[in-house]
């Protein structure tokens, strides 16, 4: 099956849940985060229950803020794990994938490559929870749109501005 929604007939009937910056969603329906630059789209799929969780992370550290846990890598990862755990998911059957974390503006970024720091923080917090990423597409200079299909084997597709979508 190719990842291009336009040629996938089932896509027509399945509008994905759009996940804005700092938002997250848990369920079996398709989910999507559009136009990730330095942001990260993190997906966790549970093979046992065919459900998944996705979050759109913007910054590495919450520095103690708790009102938007999905916005920060250090709070977003535990948030998704808690939500999946509430649904009865076991850690051993989770499949974690990540995309985004680009550096589109090197000049303004100076020495703070937020995309890279986001990705590093996600990896670190996952490691603390004894989880690792099985597939990722991070870094580079280009924006990405990420789609997640928990009811299709947890498939994750990534598309860039030129429109080519591929599975990771």
């Amino acid at each position: 099956m190719n990842g291009n929604g336009m040629t996938d007939p089932s896509f027509q009937n399945r509008m994905p849940v759009m996940i804005g910056i700092g938002e997250y969603h848990v369920g079996s329906e398709p989910m999507m985060a559009i136009g990730l630059g330095s942001c990260i789209g993190l997906t966790i799929y549970d093979r046992d229950h065919q459900i998944g969780a996705m979050v759109h992370i913007m910054l590495p550290d919450s520095s103690g803020r708790s009102d938007r846990p999905g916005k920060y890598a250090d709070t977003a990862v535990p948030l998704l794990l808690d939500k999946l755990s509430e649904k009865g998911c076991r850690k051993a059957s989770l499949v974690v994938k990540m995309a985004g974390g680009a550096c589109m503006f090197e000049y303004f970024g100076n020495n703070l490559n937020i995309g890279e720091r986001n990705a590093e923080k996600v990896r670190a917090i996952l490691a603390e929870n004894h989880l690792r990423i099985v597939a990722e597409e991070v870094g580079g200079k280009s924006g990405r749109t990420v789609a997640f299909y928990p009811d299709d084997g947890g498939k994750v597709t990534v598309r860039s501005a030129d429109g080519a979508a591929h599975e990771i």
């Binding site: 630059g37 503006f105 000049y107 303004f108 703070l112 937020i114 924006g143 860039s160 501005a161």
Partner: peptide, 23 residues
């Protein structure tokens, strides 16, 4: 600086690197 790419991705990257963190 010029970027020719997804507009949302570019704006999001700028917002993420603003000095004062904002919602």
């Amino acid at each position: 600086v010029l970027t020719i790419d997804m507009a949302h991705a570019a704006m999001q990257s700028l917002i993420a690197q603003m000095q004062e963190e904002i919602d």
